[in-house]
Design a protein around this nucleic acid. Sequence first.
DNA 1: CGTTAAGGTCAGTCATGACTTACGGTAAGT
DNA 2: ACTTACCGTAAGTCATGACTGACCTTAACG
Lengths: 101, 101
Amino acid sequence: MTDLNALTALADPTRRRVFESLRAGPLPVGALASRLPVSRPAVSQHLKVLSDAGLVTMQAQGTRRLYAIRPEGLAALRAWLDLFWDEALSRFAAATESPPS
Amino acid sequence: MTDLNALTALADPTRRRVFESLRAGPLPVGALASRLPVSRPAVSQHLKVLSDAGLVTMQAQGTRRLYAIRPEGLAALRAWLDLFWDEALSRFAAATESPPS
DNA sequence: CGTTAAGGTCAGTCATGACTTACGGTAAGT
DNA sequence: ACTTACCGTAAGTCATGACTGACCTTAACG
């Protein structure tokens, strides 16, 4: 079984919100927590999971920690999805060449 | 927050194995259960979740139920991923046009 | 019809993990 | 040095959900 830790990391709704909040650009932990309905430690823990999954990067600025999205972390997941996607396309192509009798 | 039930459905490891086992072609529940380290009821429940997420289809054959992959169920997830992917590409393109001073 | 094969559903158990409060550590401001 | 802002970690609580065994239904086969 392929292990896609990016997938399990993004499965949690609030963690996905953290990830999506980073789309507009890097943010410190406090700013993230203020936008979300959970406490700051919770956000910290989510960021750790995302970081371990290679989905975000951290850059310290004094006591602030700027977190940013790391799109390459999605590569494996994308490739896995394309596996099924391409298969569907080839099946469709085969069906087009020899239509059902 | 975008709700991607396909993502949460595929987050579970054994459920992902069920889904992957269907890549070779449609299979009845029993055949799936025999290949996996869980009981048949467990597989049934996983198939229900996958079905609710639009990831598999069911076709009855007597008392047998043939389950097959439904690739369109992955469309929303793929589109969501491409959101971040394209953003990364455009950022890279922008950085190429105006390199950091 | 009885029997067997195939599979969905129920009820209950158990572990994983998301969350909070409390605490400790570090950097900047006065 | 004291204080304040910012953040990570520890410990503990609680709910979600994955799994199993038992039960029931439906269809094919003798």
